[in-house]
Design a protein around this nucleic acid. Structure first.
Lengths: 149, 149
DNA sequence: TCCCATTTGTGCGTATGTATC
DNA sequence: GGATACATACGCACAAATGGG
């Protein structure tokens, strides 16, 4: 198993490096973020999968750890990954979705402040849905419009 | 005018420093972000107002520029400020809100990816409202539920 | 046109702390 | 206690974009 995991990791990094272009106008941390984002979108990095550690990414991309961290920070702010200290960085799993039925009101969305984040258990990079005054974490809520009775 | 501006700036920084506690468990960059966020919430820093430059904040808080930048990054990811290179960092003005009337469908919210950000002109730290397949930038959109005809 | 000052952006390096196994 | 891995904080240098003179 150790051998297989090692192989998978090497493959991931090799292709990762393949798309990094130091001569590009696009900053390196954005390129790295793009690359990982693509792999998440394609399913190559499935929900729950762990990304290589910062040190591993640093070594195998040749980038500085700060640069690697900035890439991860981007994905974090997009709600794509979940950084668990000191376990690693994981592709976020979408929690089970609760459907809320609404038949009236005004709906907005925005990023929560830290107080709201704590109060409602909203992970980083996840907005909130605001129905009139009521707050729902957007990663686990869908609003369904239903005719008023 | 120069004198007045200088006075305002000094006042701002003094109070800013006043709430920074190096012995606290809370990281310095979060404390700084908290402090500025409070000032935005209270209206002391009105929409459109410019924050002190990174160098000014660095000098007057005694924090490193990287630490100052991390504080600003937090506010940015919350959609509170708008960083314009090389002009400075400004308290974000809420754009005029467009009310969309919906009478059916499913509504979700999430952070946009860079492609969607560009396509819909969504600033950083601003989520999108997704009505079935249609995307609306959440900073300028409110959805009003209306009875189906 | 060009230079300069200002301000944010990018990228590197280093050290130490904290949490978990 | 040690190993691992992320968190915080410092520092430095140079690039890029804009505006003023």
């Amino acid at each position: 198993v150790a051998t297989l995991r090692q192989l998978d990791k090497s493959t991931f990094i090799r292709t990762l490096v393949g798309v990094l272009d130091p001569t590009s106008d696009r900053p390196m941390h954005r390129q790295l973020a793009d690359s990982i984002r693509d792999r998440i979108a394609s399913g190559e990095l499935a929900p729950g999968a762990r990304l290589p550690s910062e040190m591993a990414l640093e070594q195998e991309t040749g980038l500085n750890r700060s640069t690697v961290r900035r890439a991860i920070e981007i994905l974090r702010s997009e709600g794509l990954v979940d950084v668990r200290h000191p376990h690693g960085t994981f592709v976020r799993k979408r929690p089970a979705e609760t459907v809320i039925e609404v038949s009236a009101g005004t709906i907005r969305a925005r990023m929560p402040n830290p107080t709201e984040r704590r109060a409602h258990g909203v992970p980083e990079g996840v907005p909130i849905l605001v129905v009139d005054e009521t707050i729902y974490p957007a990663d686990r809520t869908a609003l369904r419009i239903v005719p008023r009775d």
